[in-house]
Amino acid sequence: MMIKKTALFSMLTAMVIATAACSSGGAEGTEQSGGNNNSSENNSNSGNDGNGGELSGSVVIDGSGTVYPLMSRIAEEFMVNEHENVSVEVARAGTSAGMQKYVAGETDFANASREIKEEEVAELEANGIESKEFKVALDGLTMVINPENDWAEEMTEEEISTMFVTGNYKDDDVVLWSDIRSEWPEEEINFYGPNENHGTNEFFVKEIIEEQDLVETINLQQEYSTLVNLVAEDENAIAFFGYGYYANNDDKIKAVEVDFGNGPVAPSLDTIAEDGEYGPFTRPVFTNLSIDAAKEKPQVKAFAEYIFQVANDFAGDTGFAPLPEEELQESLEFIQSIN
């Protein structure tokens, strides 16, 4: 009996000692990498030892889920091939959620699938953060339907922008396919799309339906995986999202060929370009870099340079069309000039 008690007590003691050990180890950890707030100071020290030397510290990135696949791929290549001791952390809370952290100075980069908003610029100024927006790749807004849908395979740009606006066909927004073209089935259209956390939603509302209200019957989702599954199971579904989420699921869902006036064009890595055939639905995706972070932390500057050196190598793999080389070169030179 006594032995058992002693054994149990020593277990307890061991746990307590373990905690004590952790906390002392943790203190050292702060000096090495630290939290977001105090890391800049420490990292600048390590950076001053020489630009050619091995970098360390962390690069904190949050923002768009659309840009995430590309950025995480670049981050991984950077850590594996360039600077093993740098920790590039990529989160993806959504463009607007990522921006909130960025303007508060919590992150070094904010990925965005839309341009920065005026109020976000104002907040950056209020917090004294110098920021710059860069294009990293091109995405094609893709309209997707169920593979069983053999009627709406081609639509005009106008048909798309009309059907998604509230009140254009019916007051209660219960729109039938036959409302759009009389030869199409008399069945209700089920609209889907990403919710307001996503830059893709904001882009669609701003650029495609020009600030009008979306149909009330639309089902808006947080996760693209949910959208893909909903469209894959619903013959009367139509949804919009980035090309990458379509391209990786083209066995489950079908892309609508859009007629911008010169015949139907399917979105593809060849047609998506700002002056390409799919141009009207092409949008750049961005990353915003805190210039202050780039000045203070050499690892942030190094990663920013790396992005524009390799963006086009990984764009295709992750479902983005490449940017013109000159634009990437311009961004690279801008970052190299930061001191």
């Binding site: 950890g29 991984e76 952390e89 989160a91």
Partner: peptide
């Protein structure tokens, strides 16, 4: 809390991400 989706380094202390 906002744990990042991509975090490659192995944590070595309680103040590491």
């Amino acid at each position: 809390l906002g744990i990042p989706a991509l975090l490659i380094p192995i944590p070595s202390g309680i103040f590491d991400n």
